[in-house]
Design a protein around this nucleic acid. Sequence first.
DNA 1: GTGAATGCAAAAGTTTTGCACGGAC
DNA 2: GTCCGTGCAAAACTTTTGCATTCAC
Lengths: 153, 153
Amino acid sequence: MGAERAHGLKAQVKEAREQLLAHLKGRGLRWTKQRDIILEIFIAAQKHISAQELYELVKKRSSEIGYATVYRCLNLFVDVGIAKERRFDEERVRYESAIFADHHDHLICTECGAIVEFEDERIERLQDHIASEHGFNVTNHRLELYGTCPKCR
Amino acid sequence: MGAERAHGLKAQVKEAREQLLAHLKGRGLRWTKQRDIILEIFIAAQKHISAQELYELVKKRSSEIGYATVYRCLNLFVDVGIAKERRFDEERVRYESAIFADHHDHLICTECGAIVEFEDERIERLQDHIASEHGFNVTNHRLELYGTCPKCR
DNA sequence: GTGAATGCAAAAGTTTTGCACGGAC
DNA sequence: GTCCGTGCAAAACTTTTGCATTCAC
C-alpha cells in the first residue's frame, strides 16, 4: 500500500533530471556529478528521508561527497520543485519527492513509524469551507493522522 | 476571534497550579519559586509561545532565572499535561496551554503569521472514516491550514 | 579563464546535560 | 540532612556559512 507508483523509477529520475537541468540552465548554474548522484539516490529512496539518511546513502556510493553538499542539494531540489519539505513530530526536516506526486496527507503509525500517504477530495473541500468561514484564503495545508496501523493493532 | 476563553486567567492559573502540585507530590518532586513564576507567565501568555519568548518574559519578572530552567519547566509542563508542544513550519517548538483547551486545529496566515484556532466536528468524523479505510486506529491528529487572513488579503 | 560548486571546518540556532551549589522537604 | 532543582557553561544536534580549491562552462 503506497508502494504502487504511477510511473517507474527510471521515469521519475528522468523527469527530475530534466526539471533540474532546465532550472540550472535558466539561471546560469551548473550541472555537477554530485548533484546527479544525490538526485538519483534521493528519487530512488522513494520515501520521507532526512538529510542525514540521504547523506549516508550517498556516502556509500561516493564517499567523497560532503554533508554540506547534501544539504545544499536538498534546498536546491526544493527550489526546483523536485522535493518537498515535511516536518513531522521530530526535530529534523524530512524530504519527499514531488515528482508525479499529487498533494497528499499522511497516516503515521505511532508504534512502528510506518507512514501511509492518502488523498481525499472531501477533506480538501471541507477545509476550504472552514477556512472561508474564518475569512481565510487557503493556499496550502498539512494534515497528519497519528494512530496504530493494521499490523500494530 | 479566539481571544474569548471559557474561563478567566486566574482560574486557568489555579487549575494549572493544582495539576502541577498533584504531579509533583505524587512523585516526590519539589515545588519551587521558579516553577511557579514560569507557570504563571506561561498561562498568562495565552498564545503559542517558544521557549525563547517565554524566557524573555520570565527574565523581566525575575532576572536570575536561567534558560535551562525554562526548558526543563516546559518539558515538565508537557509531562504534567499543562502544556502541549506544537511544531509549525519553523525550527523551534512552540508551546500552548492545555488548560481548558479542547482539541483544536490551526489556521495560519502566511503573510502576518497570525494563528487562529478552530474546531470542527465534521473534519474529525471524516478523518476517523478515512483512517479506518486504511485499517488505522487514529488517536491523534494535526491539521494546519496555511493561507491569507482577512486583514492580509 | 571565469565564477559557480564543493569539501572541510567553523558557526549559528535550538535544546539538553554535567556539575557544583543552594533550597525544599 | 537529604537529594531535587537551579544556574552556568559546555555539549549535542541539525542546518548554514566562509573560504580555499576544484571543476563546469
